[in-house]
Amino acid sequence: MEINRGFFCIDVSRFQKAIGMLDDSIQELRRVAHHMMPESLLRYGLKASLTDFCAAIPIADFHYFGNETRLSEKMEIMIYRCIHELVNNALKHAQPSHINVQLVQEENRISFTVQDDGIGFDQEQVTEGMGLQNVRQRVDAFQGKMNIYSSGQGTAVLVKMAIEQKLI
């Protein structure tokens, strides 16, 4: 019985390449999953997870004002994902040199702002993409208000909402 060694080597090479691509895909999936729900959010709360997220982006600063009472898990996840999406939108579209993320937590309400010094956009000409639509839907689900201000000097997205009281 004769074995075609050339054919076998090609198949091994293809297999190794496929395994390498699969490993890369798994790494990327883990990275995305971590950003969607970092463990620090569940363990330490919104302030710690947003501090970590912004610290990983050289041009982003994070400022937290107010009390640090934990919010409901659903609200913390929603706020984290909104800020994550808004920062990524700025990085992807605005060409900013600086992004400022600010969160203000009061007793009965919370607000956050994501502001960049990028190129901005004409709100009359540009429709909201999927990212902004997802943020708006999340904010609406919590009966919040979202305002977008944009010019050639940058964009600011301001979100305000009542704090959902945790049931103990």
Rank of each mutant, 00 (worst) to 15 (best):
G129E: 02
G129R: 05
G118E: 02
N134V: 00
D140R: 11
G120W: 02
K145R: 15
E124Q: 13
Q123Y: 03
V135K: 02
R136W: 04
Y149V: 15
R138P: 00
N147T: 14
R136Q: 14
K145N: 14
I148P: 00
V139S: 10
Q133K: 13
V135M: 06
Q123P: 00
T113L: 05
V126L: 06
Q125R: 15
V139G: 11
D140M: 11
A141R: 06
Q137Y: 04
F142Y: 10
M146D: 04
Q123M: 09
G144K: 04
Q115I: 10
Q137D: 15
N134E: 01
F142H: 08
T127D: 11
G144D: 08
D122R: 09
D122T: 05
I119V: 14
D116I: 13
M130Q: 04
N147A: 12
Q115C: 14
D116G: 09
Q123K: 06
R136V: 10
D140N: 12
T127C: 08
G131I: 06
S150Y: 07
I148K: 08
G144Q: 05
M130L: 08
V139W: 05
Q133I: 07
E124M: 11
M130E: 04
Q137A: 15
I119S: 09
G118Y: 01
D116E: 13
T113G: 01
D116Q: 09
S111Q: 12
I148Q: 02
S111D: 09
Q125C: 08
M130R: 07
G120F: 03
Q143P: 00
G144I: 04
T113F: 03
Q133C: 04
F142V: 00
F121E: 00
G118K: 01
F112K: 11
E124H: 13
A141Q: 08
S111R: 06
G129L: 05
S151W: 11
D140V: 09
Y149C: 14
T127V: 09
N147Y: 06
V114H: 07
L132Y: 13
F112Q: 11
Q143L: 09
V135G: 03
T127L: 11
M130K: 09
A141E: 06
M146A: 08
Q137T: 07
S150P: 02
E124I: 07
I119M: 06
V139H: 08
R136E: 12
V135C: 07
A141F: 07
Y149H: 15
R138E: 06
Q133W: 01
M146H: 04
T127N: 10
R136S: 14
V135E: 02
T113W: 02
D140A: 15
G144Y: 05
R138M: 15
F142R: 00
M146F: 04
Q125K: 15
E128R: 12
Q133P: 00
